[in-house]
């Protein structure tokens, strides 16, 4: 537990001092979502209908931007080898990395999402569904993304490969995340979609660090 907290603190310190990666993800998130009304036309009746889905799609892509560097920096400068030899289990390291990634990306997306909801003219009743679905869904993106980041460690063309591996696994989160917002816009109950998302989150919390650890072990050996 202490190891987990120390590792998260290390990641956050590196992110704070390292620079603008996290901010870039949020800028990308807002910018990419702003592009859609230009392409599709800004019909105020249509925007709320497609808004939830677009916000979620763009959130997936924004979360993926910083995934590639999740383990790559530590792998290149050798600190991953030291962490591997340290008494902290690899699963704990994977969990810490995923949580730190969520704190530096997912939380910022969560904060920026209401701005996009305003731009997309979402009704006030959908804001709760948006916030809750992002709160439950974005940690899954970080946890599952960690598996991909560990798998592609040292691969040629890592970035494109990472997208190919991870996006199919993100589809269920997208379906139920966007489904919750659409449900709220249309006045349907949002409980079922949020419950399914919570289920995904629990499963990812239990299994993803374990799979990431297996992938890291292959990369280090």
């Amino acid at each position: 537990m202490i190891g987990l907290i120390l590792l998260i603190r290390r990641e956050l310190k590196l992110a704070l001092r390292g620079g603008t990666d996290a901010v870039m993800a949020v800028v990308f998130f807002v910018l990419a979502a702003v592009l859609f009304p230009f392409g599709l036309g800004a019909d105020p009746a249509m925007l709320p209908r497609i808004g939830g889905g677009i916000i979620w799609v763009v959130a997936l892509l924004a979360a993926m931007l910083s995934l590639e560097r999740m383990y790559a920096n530590d792998h290149e400068d050798g600190s991953l080898d030291l962490l591997y030899l340290s008494p902290v289990a690899l699963g704990t390291l994977a969990l810490a990395k995923a949580l730190a990634h969520w704190l530096t990306t997912g939380v910022l997306l969560l904060i920026a999402a209401p701005i996009l909801a305003l731009l997309y003219n979402l009704p006030a009743s959908a804001f709760g569904a948006l916030a809750l679905s992002m709160l439950l869904g974005t940690p899954i993106l970080s946890l599952v993304g960690g598996i991909g980041a560990a798998l592609t460690l040292g691969a040629r063309r890592g970035g494109v490969l990472l997208a190919l591996l991870i996006l199919p696994l993100y589809v269920p989160v997208l379906i139920f995340g966007a489904g919750a917002i659409d449900g709220a816009v249309a006045g349907r109950p949002i409980g079922p979609a949020l419950l399914v998302l919570s289920g995904f989150l629990l499963a990812a919390l239990a299994l993803a660090p374990w799979a990431t650890a297996a992938a890291l072990r292959q990369a280090i050996e």
């Binding site: 592609t152 490969l161 992938a215 990369a219």
Partner: peptide, 25 residues
């Protein structure tokens, strides 16, 4: 994705192991 990951490494062993983890996920 499985095929791409298998062929993405200079060391075929590493590609096979990474692809195995992906297949299980």
């Amino acid at each position: 994705g499985h095929i791409a990951l298998t062929n993405a490494f200079d060391n075929p062993q590493r590609g096979a192991r990474a692809a195995a983890v992906l297949a299980l996920v």
